[in-house]
């Protein structure tokens, strides 16, 4: 029981920290620093927060595997879409986890592999976050009570703002802002339609792929 709570808690905190990492990374690359928050501070917090994300996600994964309630194997946390418990939504988490590991490892070995290879891999950060976000909404047991939903939406808003700011700071700001706004609008609309019909609707546990053997139990 304690493990299951730990899984949920670390998952939530990891999403917040991942959001902070991504937002600071975007702020860093868009060079939106000031006298009061110099770049090296932004950069140092970005690096430190990312390491905490790895740590938290490691606990999140281990506790989920060790807990006896949901049938999640260690392999399910790494190989996406192979599990029996909410396979799509846990799979998105696994994808996000894989990308996170790739980002962390290449960053630690940055001096070895060179900036070009590192930067190429680092673009994956933009995919890592949406996977984690959808994983949180689709798998999360705490969406219906509301607090996790609002936390997730706040994270999404922060990321959307940061991405817009970066687009505005880019060389071809006009095109970039239009493109990013369009993508964000479509994503927002899709979420607005899907969240009430999906995670908030009755029967989501079943629809999302929870094994029927678990549905009877109250948890």
């Amino acid at each position: 029981m304690a493990l299951w709570y730990l899984t949920r808690a670390t998952g939530g905190v990891a999403l917040v920290l991942l959001t902070i990492t991504l937002v600071l990374g975007i702020v860093d690359v868009a060079r939106l620093s000031s006298q009061r928050t110099p770049r090296f501070v932004v950069d140092a917090v970005h690096r430190t927060a990312s390491l905490f994300v790895v740590l938290l996600v490691a606990i999140h994964v281990l506790t989920a595997v060790l807990d006896s309630f949901a049938p999640i194997r260690l392999a399910d946390a790494i190989v996406p879409f192979g599990g029996t418990y909410r396979p799509v939504w846990v799979g998105l988490g696994a994808l996000s986890f894989d990308l996170l590991l790739a980002l962390a490892v290449t960053s630690l070995l940055r001096a070895r592999i060179g900036v070009r290879a590192w930067r190429t891999v680092h673009w994956a950060a933009y995919a890592c976050w949406p996977f984690a976000f959808m994983h949180a909404l689709g798998t999360g047991s705490d969406i219906k009570p509301g607090w996790m939903l609002w936390l997730s939406l706040a994270c999404a808003a922060a990321v959307a703002l940061a991405v817009l700011a970066r687009a505005a700071a880019s060389y071809s700001a006009g095109v970039a802002v239009t493109g990013v706004t369009a993508v964000l609008a479509i994503a927002g609309l899709a979420l607005a339609l899907w969240i009430p019909a999906g995670p908030l609707a009755n029967g989501w546990a079943k629809k999302s792929g929870t094994p029927s053997s678990l549905l009877g139990g109250k948890r």
């Binding site: 060079r31 110099p38 770049r39 090296f40 950069d43 900036v115």
Partner: peptide
């Protein structure tokens, strides 16, 4: 040829 003027080095040192 590699420097892209992030300026972090001047903040740090």
């Amino acid at each position: 040829t590699a420097c892209t003027a992030h300026g972090m080095c001047a903040e740090l040192f």
